[in-house]
Design a protein around this nucleic acid. Structure first.
Length: 350
DNA sequence: ATTCCACGGGAATCGGTGGCAA
DNA sequence: TTGCCACCGATTCCCGTGGAAT
């Protein structure tokens, strides 16, 4: 049933960014100086997950770079160190990658040398970045401007000192969830390009938009799952049952992508929490130690310390795979969505 | 008031990799 | 080509913190 699967990819950029015209405009104006070879303004884009912050930045950038000589870099910041961010920027700029053991200082020097025309760096998922350090170094680079994307702008700004804020010329741009009609418009446009005509009604799209509370990523994935379900069930068009069952599959799909991108240690911890149906910290560590020898055997990996496990756990939380409740010794790790599984077998061992 | 427990920041350490000189 | 060294990211070690339990 799906004519063009790419339309439903997270990375897919539509021809027009519906209902974000004002934001595109704002961002374009902030970047206008770059058209004349000057340094653009820095922008902080903030708002909830899945409302199109990254799409907005990429879309507007694409528009800009088609008629101007501008370098750009897109950095997936989550978990990166300062050196990692600089390295990632260099990777996106013309030229070859520096050696993996190049000193941080040398990376920054190389960055200053390579930026010889206006450059826009998108720092995606910038919430947990060592922001002061990174911005300090990026702000040092003549011609380079930053677009930081984060969820909580107040928290993000609070870590910057006044001096840095002045150097950054920071503009702010808030994105919110879409209204039901707005998101339905967006889904309609995707359906037009990705699905045969007439397989889904406007009413169904509004139902989806309402259910996902204006979060575009969830809406688009739900539409995709609804069409997959219709296909599996041999429906000639999407039915009410397909729509009804699509949300859970979409949510699961999103989380499975997240989980699959994580290394083994994370997945094992997740699986223990999932199988346990939520665990107190102490119990989680006990179970980990109980299964570790068996589970790690033959994988060329060794079990990790409690401290490292805590680092992995906070990453699982970042990825919305688990939730943490309670404080201190009452802290409990809860699987956000227990139907999202790993391929690791821990059932029999416990 | 004291103990318990877990968190999470920071410094030290480990293992792997590329550059470089012999 | 080989052996050494600097460096990185990942991990561990150490410890201060703070709320609940006793």
């Amino acid at each position: 049933m799906i004519a063009d699967p790419a339309v439903f990819d997270d990375e897919h950029l539509p021809r027009r960014l519906l209902h974000r015209e004002a934001a595109v405009d704002y961002l374009s104006r902030a970047w206008e100086p770059a058209l004349d070879g000057d340094q653009a303004h820095d922008v902080l884009i903030h708002g909830p997950s899945g409302v199109g912050k990254t799409s907005l930045a990429r879309f507007t950038l694409q528009k800009l770079t088609t008629h101007a000589d501008i370098y750009s870099a897109h950095v997936e910041s989550l978990g990166k160190t300062t050196a990692g961010v600089v390295r990632s920027v260099l990777h996106d700029l013309p030229g070859s990658d520096p050696a993996t053991n190049t000193p941080r200082e040398d990376l920054c020097i190389e960055l200053r040398e390579r930026v010889d025309q206006p450059t826009i760096v998108i720092l995606d998922e910038a919430d947990d970045l060592p922001a002061t350090d990174i911005l300090d170094r990026l702000a040092d680079v003549e011609g380079l401007s930053i677009v930081a994307i984060c969820h909580d702008h107040e928290q993000w700004l609070s870590q910057l000192d006044n001096q840095l804020r002045r150097r950054l010329l920071l503009k702010e741009l808030a994105l919110d969830r879409f209204g039901v009609n707005e998101l339905a418009d967006i889904l309609e446009a995707r359906a037009r390009r990705g699905l045969p005509s007439g397989v889904v009604t406007r009413e169904q799209l509004e139902t989806i938009a309402d259910e996902v509370a204006g979060v575009a990523r969830k809406g688009i994935q739900s539409l995709r799952q609804a069409s997959l379900l219709a296909e599996e069930r041999d429906h000639s068009e999407i039915g009410a049952d397909d729509v009804a069952d699509s949300y859970e599959r979409a949510q699961r799909y999103i989380l499975e992508q997240n989980l699959g991108s994580l290394p083994f240690h994370h997945q094992l911890l997740y699986e223990l929490i999932r199988v346990g149906g939520g665990l107190k910290a102490g119990e989680l560590h006990d179970r980990y130690e109980a299964v570790a020898d068996d589970v790690y055997r033959g994988r060329g990996l060794t079990p990790i310390s409690e401290r490292s496990r805590r680092l992995k756990l906070s990453k699982l939380e970042d990825y919305e795979l688990i939730e943490v409740e309670g404080k201190n010794r009452h802290r409990e790790y809860i699987p956000s969505y227990a139907c999202v599984k790993t391929s690791i077998e821990v059932n029999q061992i416990i």
